[in-house]
């Protein structure tokens, strides 16, 4: 079985989260998953264009989906928010005839057509549902034994369930199942399903930094070595802003944050450097070296 996807990287994989691009390509290559980047994809709107002009956001994402349809493959994203924005657009267009007609009228300007033939999925879901955890387990070269991992799902891979629907948003298990398949240890903690706040970090800086700190502290206090997240935006918030969040707390909140493809890559035998882990603000290398050397 050859898995093939229209790859929608999203803006951050081109810039601040380039390490996700690096890690994903390594992992996909090793697992034999073919990722064909959609040529000419545009920003999903990140829930912000939606706040300016809903109709425009719908049309732009219809264009993105149409690019995937032309490939004849499901669309895969690495970012929770991209997944939600694309899925929301798809659901709206599929359920509303009038919206579909309007959108296709707009797409004609770009010589494209929305047909509704491609599903939109996320790397995490592909691992669990399409690739399969048993197959993943077989590919593990370096079990992450002893590494204590706190899973941080992020909102837009779970909520709203009307749009996402992959698993129960009250008690999801997919991340923990992947972590377990890689041989690492899951650490339960209070903020597993919290919001990182990234989308409001400018207008609500104080509140968001506080949330960042609470999430990091919660995982740290639960004994986790790292937090792992399937979303580059959550990663940016928890990693890049962690030093700023620290200023709101007397106690240390320090904890390294890994991207899901990086965690998978480590278990597949890639080095932290090969997976771009050096690019993180909160240095994850020492704890990885300590833990993984021991294993």
């Amino acid at each position: 079985m050859r898995l093939r996807y229209g790859f929608f990287p999203g803006c951050t994989l081109e810039s601040a989260a380039r390490e996700v691009m690096i890690a994903t390509q390594k992992v996909a290559g090793a697992l034999g998953i073919e990722l064909v980047e959609l040529e000419g994809w545009s920003c999903c709107g990140a829930s912000h264009i939606q706040d300016v002009d809903e109709e425009l956001a719908l049309a732009l994402n219809a264009r993105n989906i149409a690019l995937g349809e032309a490939l004849g493959a499901p669309i895969l994203t690495l970012c929770n928010t991209c997944t939600l924005m694309l899925r929301s657009a798809k659901q709206r267009i599929d359920e509303d005839e009038a919206a579909r007609a309007r959108v296709n009228e707009a797409l004609r300007a770009a010589d494209l057509q929305y047909r509704g033939t491609s599903d939109i999925t996320h790397f995490l879901w592909v691992l669990v549902r399409d690739y399969g955890l048993e197959n993943l387990r077989k590919q593990v070269k370096r079990p992450l034994t002893g590494l204590k991992v706190a899973c941080f799902y992020g909102c837009h891979i779970l909520r709203p369930p009307q749009v996402m629907g992959f698993e129960n948003p009250w008690n999801p298990r997919s991340m923990e199942m992947v972590v377990e398949a890689l041989g690492a240890e899951n650490v339960p903690y209070g903020e597993r399903l919290s919001c990182c706040g990234f989308h409001a970090v400018f207008p609500a800086e104080r509140e968001v930094l506080r949330k960042t700190g609470v999430s990091c502290r919660s995982a740290r206090e639960a004994g986790a070595d790292v937090i792992v997240t399937p979303c580059p935006l959550c990663h940016m918030q928890l990693d890049m802003y962690q030093p700023d969040a620290q200023q709101q707390f007397a106690e240390s909140i320090r904890i390294p944050i890994l991207h899901l493809p990086q965690l998978v890559g480590l278990a597949l035998g890639f080095s932290p450097e090969e997976l771009g882990i050096r690019r993180h603000v909160v240095d994850a290398i020492p704890v990885l070296e300590a833990k993984l050397a021991r294993a």
């Binding site: 837009h156 706040g197 409001a200 207008p203």
Partner: peptide, 14 residues
Amino acid sequence: SDLWKCLHCYQCVT
């Protein structure tokens, strides 16, 4: 009253 501070966490909808 801070309309732009909604975090887009979708907890309410969920």
